[in-house]
């Protein structure tokens, strides 16, 4: 095939790198270069007034990061958030995906739209919604006081639970769609076949359906884990500055403290954690034979 396309003077698309080079050029400058720059900068002694070539290099920033208990605590806290948010989105996401999968076609469109809308609304509008829900004079406080469970308004904003709930809500659509799309690839008669072979419906669900969606669950978990690890706006609004996750610390170091090298060190550590998790999930996928879509 390639032979013939070469001899006919490249009549087919994709012969030339010309098609690819504009995208690669933009990526190189806007995406790859900044990432490389971070690695270089992470070894610099902070001196914004000096030119790049005049700066002094040392591993000091890394030493400071790994020996300061504050940053280790932030890492631990961020990872704990990731685990909680992934597990919660898995449970709630599976429930939603299953109910959409089983719904009739008209209801299906509406239900999917309800799940998609938060996804497209973005972090700001979503977290403003949670900000209003959880505020001192918001509906949740009003409801709890009407029930007599609270005597005076309680500020839920700035608590770990509030931020976790908002993050679960923010990343839930990705999990639902991941699982839903892997449910859609299951042949419709397979669970029935299992049932006709004597499996109860519940055991057919657990032993046939769930294993077949393992790929979607793993892919969704990876995505949600990564997004929680880098979440910035939601903890900012719902956490009201009281909840400091890694991304907030990076912003603070870069924009407020103006210590770019140190912000770079934190960033690279975050990236390393993401890399390890991806490798782990890839291994898990291969081990269980699930297929990542």
């Amino acid at each position: 095939m390639t032979q013939s396309s070469r001899t006919t003077g490249g009549r087919r698309f994709g012969v030339g790198w010309m098609l690819l080079s504009p995208a690669l050029a933009v990526y190189g400058i806007i995406f790859l270069l900044p990432a490389l720059l971070l690695m270089v900068i992470s070894f610099q002694v902070n001196a914004p007034e000096l030119y790049l070539w005049e700066r002094v290099y040392s591993p000091e920033n890394y030493r400071r990061f790994y020996t300061d208990p504050y940053f280790l605590k932030v890492i631990g806290k961020t990872l704990a958030y990731c685990v909680v948010v992934v597990l919660a989105t898995l449970v709630v996401g599976y429930l939603l995906a299953w109910s959409i999968y089983k719904a009739r076609s008209f209801a299906k469109t509406t239900l999917i739209t309800l799940v998609l809308t938060p996804l497209f609304s973005g972090a700001l509008l979503q977290s403003l919604g949670w900000y209003l829900l959880l505020a001192r004079y918001g509906p949740i406080n009003a409801g709890l006081r009407a029930l007599g469970w609270l005597d005076k308004p309680f500020n839920f904003l700035g608590t770990d639970a509030a931020v976790m709930i908002a993050l679960v809500h923010a990343f839930l659509p990705f999990m639902v769609l991941s699982i839903l799309n892997s449910l859609r690839t299951i042949p419709a008669n397979l669970p029935d076949a299992a049932a006709s072979l004597g499996a109860g419906s519940w055991s057919a669900f657990i032993r046939v359906t769930v294993p077949l969606t393992k790929g979607g669950m793993i892919a969704g978990s990876g995505l949600v884990f990564g997004m929680t690890l880098g979440s910035f706006a939601t903890p900012g609004i719902v956490g009201q500055g009281k909840i400091q996750l890694l991304a907030q610390i990076i912003y603070q170091q870069a924009i407020q403290v103006f210590d770019w090298p140190f912000a770079a060190v934190i960033s690279l550590n975050l990236l390393a954690m993401l890399g390890m998790i991806s490798a782990l999930l890839a291994l898990l996928t291969r081990r269980t034979g699930g297929e990542v879509r």
Partner: peptide
């Protein structure tokens, strides 16, 4: 799949 915060920091620099 690349955390936006990290990429943004690199771009800023």
């Amino acid at each position: 799949f690349f955390p936006l915060v990290i990429w943004s920091l690199g771009l800023l620099q």
